[in-house]
Amino acid sequence: MSGQFPAGSAIELVGLTKRYGTSVVVDRLSLSVPRGSTFGLIGPNGAGKSTTIKMLMGLLAPTSGSARVLGFDVATRSRDVRRQVGYVPETHQIYRWMRVGEVVGFVKLLYDSWDDRLCEDLLDRFALDRNKRVKHLSKGAIAKLGLLLAIAHKPEVLVLDEPVSGMDPIIREEFLEGVLQAVADGRRTILFSSHNLDDVRRLADSVAILCEGRLVVHRDTDALLASTKRVTAVLKDGCLPRGAPEGVIWQRVARREWSLTITDFSGEVLGRLKDENPIETVTVEDLGLEDIFKDYIKGRRAVE
């Protein structure tokens, strides 16, 4: 596999798989994330997002397949990966009895590239009291400390696992501002998983939907939104659809109404749908990311 790593990629997964006994948590996942882009990983609970991220960080060994970060295979070069990646885990494992200043001093020792000035700047910006013990910090402050510890060594790649889950709207906004302030000038690559689809829409250049360990779709976010449409057709009395066009990700017939969500939609697709089916009228609507996400998942589950 060496030498196949594309120069423009920061992250490259090839057939990445994690199995526990007979259950497959991550199933032959292949995708690449270009350098300097922001990538959003979404999926229902148990889709394999966290497992994928843990394999990416070298914290879990893949059963098969490979993951490379900045060209380093995570299975054999996890030290190199960790040196150049900032990681904000789902649950912060920061020593709760330590003071903020002590935690910072401790983590600093792990990185050659630690930037003291940036660190001081972030402590001030995030209003973190160096003398406070971690256990006395608010949830939002702990999250910000976690972010600081992940970015003060100026990593090329930032990985965040459900960074804003459980945060109130104000803290969420402050945290996202912190991420953007920290990364906006460095042209860094960001990979994050989230259930907050508004955040994914705001931040992600490309988005991947994971369902039951499998990659359902991975696309440029704007392209996904532009090419996915909901078509609602009224069927002629007593008729059923004869054939759905290509690109249907979800469909439902309820009495005379035939609803379809179609990706790579075009006038040609609509023409064929009309020609080949007993249809009275047809309307085409745009969809937001949330509807597209739900339709992909519902469509996927209907097949299985």
Partner: peptide
């Protein structure tokens, strides 16, 4: 700047 507007609007600086 790209960064200031990205932070203000909470969007990706690439956008």
């Amino acid at each position: 700047s790209l960064r200031a507007l990205a932070v203000e609007l909470l969007v990706n600086p690439n956008t």
